[in-house]
Design a protein around this nucleic acid. Structure first.
Length: 195
DNA sequence: AGCACA
C-alpha cells in the first residue's frame, strides 16, 4: 500500500521473482499460477540487466488482472514473496487484441481514443449483450473512481450510458475497459457521448 | 531495486 498505485489495466507487473530460473521455465510457471484468474494474452519476461526478476502478465480483461493482484501479491513463489501490482503502461499485446496497435505509437503517451469525438464525462457503451443488466455494469465501471451513474436504454439493453464526475475519470475507465469482454462474443465498444 | 514488448 505504500507504493504508487498504477491505475487498473489488463497488465500485471510482477517482481521479486527468482532470477536463477530459465526464462521459459519461469514463463511456464507464471502462466500456470496466473491463468486461474482469467485468460492470459501473454507473459513477458526478459533477462536484461534492467528487467531480470520481473514479468508482465497480460490478461484479456481488467477484472482478471485485479483479481490476480488481490490473490497473488505476497504469494510464496519458489523461495520469495511475489510483488504484484498493475503495470505502469499498457502492453502492446492489448493494443493488438483491440486492433489498435501501431508500431509508431510505442513509447508515446497517446491514447487509443478516437479523436473523432470530444472527451466527455459520459461514455456510450455499444455492442453489449442484450441481456446486460445495470448492476453488472456498475460493478465493472465502479472499479474506476468517480462513477456517478449507469443508465441502460429502455427496450435496448445493447447500449448504455456511463457517467463519471470528471472527464478524466471517464477517459481512464474508457481506456482500461475498451474491448472488455462481458462475454466472449461481445467486446465492448466505448465512445464519448455526444455533447 | 529494477516497468517491457520491435
Amino acid at each position: 500500500m505504500a507504493s504508487i498505485q498504477a491505475h487498473p489495466k489488463r497488465t500485471v507487473y510482477v517482481h521479486n521473482l527468482p532470477d536463477k530460473i530459465k526464462d521459459e521455465d519461469l514463463r511456464r510457471s507464471l502462466y500456470g499460477v496466473f491463468s486461474q484468474f482469467g485468460g492470459i494474452l501473454e507473459v513477458v519476461t526478459r533477462k536484461t540487466i534492467k528487467t531480470r526478476g520481473q514479468a508482465w502478465i497480460v490478461f484479456q480483461d481488467v477484472a482478471s488482472a485485479a483479481n490476480a493482484i488481490r490473490q497473488m501479491d505476497s504469494f510464496l513463489f519458489y523461495d520469495k514473496l511475489l510483488r504484484v501490482s498493475f503495470a505502469v503502461s499498457d502492453s502492446d499485446a492489448v493494443a493488438k487484441m483491440l486492433g489498435e496497435y501501431k508500431p509508431c505509437m510505442r513509447r508515446s503517451q497517446t491514447t487509443s481514443t478516437p479523436d473523432t469525438t470530444e472527451p466527455h464525462n459520459i461514455l456510450l457503451l455499444i455492442n453489449l449483450p442484450v441481456d446486460t443488466d445495470e448492476k453488472r455494469l456498475q460493478v465493472i465501471f465502479g472499479q474506476f473512481p468517480g462513477l456517478k451513474e449507469v443508465r441502460l436504454i429502455q427496450n435496448r439493453h445493447d447500449v448504455a450510458f456511463v457517467e463519471y464526475v470528471e472527464i478524466h475519470q471517464a477517459t481512464q475507465a474508457m481506456n482500461s475497459l475498451q474491448g472488455y469482454l462481458i462475454d466472449p462474443d461481445h467486446p465492448m465498444k466505448i465512445v464519448y457521448a455526444k455533447k
